[in-house]
Design a binder for these strands. Structure first.
Lengths: 148, 148
DNA sequence: CTTATTTCAGATGAACTGAAATGC
DNA sequence: CGCATTTCAGTTTATCTGAAATAA
């Protein structure tokens, strides 16, 4: 100790910077749809894993169940998701993407894919694959599955 | 059209998930210091690039000058940064990390480095280097130009 | 009884927009 | 005059904590 902090163009900082830039671009891409990047993400998660409960979605996104509940209510009022009682546990409500929600995802999927493409434009397919692998191993190492 | 959106374990989503996990861990690491991850980042940026103005810092972090101004005021009141008038342009004020701020950075640098280490624990040195390179090329391709 | 899920209510903080003052 | 920077003021929005109801 006594050492000055290391110069930090650190990986943590780099990740934050990329995420900030991505969010900024996503805001612009999604602006015409009237939903936020966070809501869009919730929709895509529901599309991949149909029938999640609000509590499960909340844990996936590092927010409280109350916060996610509000977000889902907004999406429900816009007709993008629907909810039904879980037959196996009548306390929880299962959420699904509606046809309108699917239409929205279909409409914006291309634009979001283009954004992703522009982000990794200078990387080869092999590098892109390695990049995805690294990101995933970071997620796992950081102890995925938040809040239990 | 008519196509359902592609299944999206996308790079954009992976980046967001890693960033969420990092922020959650950073909150825990920095809690005893009383400063937020965002404030800590501002400190590290100032340490690397001494004498930036509030407006420059704001552009670096994708926030408005007003927002960054408030954050710097908080850090100043805690004695972690100091400000002085730019001799070449008496309108702007240059910000520097104080000795107390440097002490704080020194104290937490180790803990933050350990967090980063745990994140990439499963990657080889070569892979870590490639990872950093990919992140940087993403940042460049997304066309941010943090702080001039 | 304990735990999980959902929801209502209120509090808080972090960001924004608008506007003004200052300097180049 | 136009533009950048800083700061004051007010507002909005997203999140939280706390508490209650319901169900397993």
């Amino acid at each position: 100790m006594g050492n000055a902090p290391s110069p930090r163009p650190s990986l943590l900082y780099a990740i934050k910077q990329v995420e900030l830039a991505v969010r900024s671009r996503m805001d612009a891409v999604l602006a015409p749809s009237g939903i936020t990047p966070l809501q869009y993400t919730a929709l895509t998660v529901l599309h991949r894993r149909d029938g999640l409960s609000v509590a499960q979605l909340a844990r996936n996104s590092f927010v409280t169940a109350q916060t996610m509940g509000e977000m889902i209510t907004v999406l429900e009022h816009r007709g993008l998701v629907s909810r039904r009682v879980d037959p196996t546990s009548r306390r929880r409500t299962l959420t699904s993407v509606t046809q309108a929600g699917l239409d929205l995802l279909t409409e914006y999927d291309t634009k979001v894919a283009e954004l992703e493409e522009s982000m990794v434009a200078t990387l080869t397919p092999r590098q892109r694959h390695a990049f995805a692998t690294y990101l995933n191993s970071c997620r796992v190492s950081l102890g995925d599955s938040p809040a239990h």
